[in-house]
């Protein structure tokens, strides 16, 4: 961490730093305003989420009135097993996409800012982002199935998800890589550090938020991806495809969807919370 610390300039005390920022940016009006904006939007995000959790216990989930209360939907959720396989498939797929995003975006992403013609490379990399999901799915379908005659399956869904998630991962890695002072690496090389040491001890700690973000974003984007999957699924069923198909069943799936969302909410909250807690308390100690 020592090199990174030197880089970030930790000679100022913490209180001093804060004051510096407050003077520079957060004149008395700005500071509370900035915090309030965030608070309002977080509240706006959580009104429907909390309401959704509440309504998952309501006998009439779409009515907007949490009365009378019931555990019926959870009973129903656990009594049916049809969603378990799509859910497991989705989790594994998202995990694979997240890991592959990190493995590809880190070496390639950190190499791109050092290239001479970066603009073109970056444009090609980001291009698929600007094509709507269904259209990208249709294009990949035409290519993989109609022209190459490959049998579709989980692998093609994986390809579709990578095409979607990887550019985001790149952006995160590139953004941090460009802000990175390469003289640190040169200095380390002069001091006789190996390529691995230079990466692991200097570059990685600074890029860590980007790397973590790339993996996390890859996971999330894949976990919720529907539009490309519709075209590339073959006969596989991921969780978003499952709920999408159930919409044609002419039966209400809200009870189960609400219940499931509440469960995901309950599971991710402690995991992500702990994750950020560790990330920041560690950074704190580092300081």
């Amino acid at each position: 961490m020592s090199a990174a610390d030197a880089h970030a300039g930790r000679r100022l005390g913490r209180a001093q730093r804060l004051r510096l920022w407050e003077h520079a940016v957060y004149a008395p009006i700005w500071r509370p305003l900035a915090a309030w904006i965030g608070l309002v939007l977080i509240v706006l995000t959580y009104i429907p989420l909390v309401w959704l959790v509440v309504m998952s216990f309501s006998d009439r989930p779409l009515s907007g009135i949490p009365h009378p209360l019931t555990l019926r939907w959870y009973d129903e959720l656990f009594a049916t097993s049809a969603w378990i396989e799509p859910m497991t498939d989705s989790l594994w797929l998202a995990l694979a996409v997240g890991v592959c995003c990190v493995l590809i975006s880190v070496p390639v992403g950190r190499a791109i800012p050092r290239l001479r013609r970066r603009g073109g490379v970056l444009l090609i990399t980001l291009l698929p982002l600007f094509v709507p999901g269904l259209t990208m799915g249709a294009a990949l379908f035409l290519f993989i199935r109609s022209y190459m005659h490959f049998k579709l399956g989980m692998w093609s869904v994986f390809v579709g998800h990578m095409v979607w998630a990887l550019p985001f991962a790149f952006l995160l890695v590139i953004v941090l890589a460009t802000r990175f002072d390469h003289r640190l690496l040169e200095a380390a090389e002069d001091l006789g550090a190996s390529a691995w040491q230079r990466f692991w001890q200097i570059e990685f700690p600074i890029m860590r938020p980007g790397i973590v973000g790339a993996g996390l974003f890859g996971f999330i984007l894949s976990f919720n991806e529907l539009l490309r999957s519709i075209f590339l699924r073959g006969t596989e069923t991921t969780m978003p495809i499952y709920t999408w198909a159930q919409a044609s069943s002419h039966q209400s799936n809200v009870p189960i969807i609400f219940g499931l969302a509440s469960l995901i909410f309950g599971v991710t909250l402690p995991i992500i919370g702990t994750f950020f807690w560790i990330l920041f308390s560690r950074t704190d100690r580092g300081r």
Binding site: I42, L49, N224, A261, I272, G273
Partner: peptide, 19 residues
């Protein structure tokens, strides 16, 4: 900070249509 980042991250895991 950790709490706020957590709160900002969680919704990504949940289906947008039900919200």
């Amino acid at each position: 900070k950790a709490i706020l980042l957590t709160l900002l991250t969680i919704p990504f895991f949940l289906d947008l249509s039900s919200r």
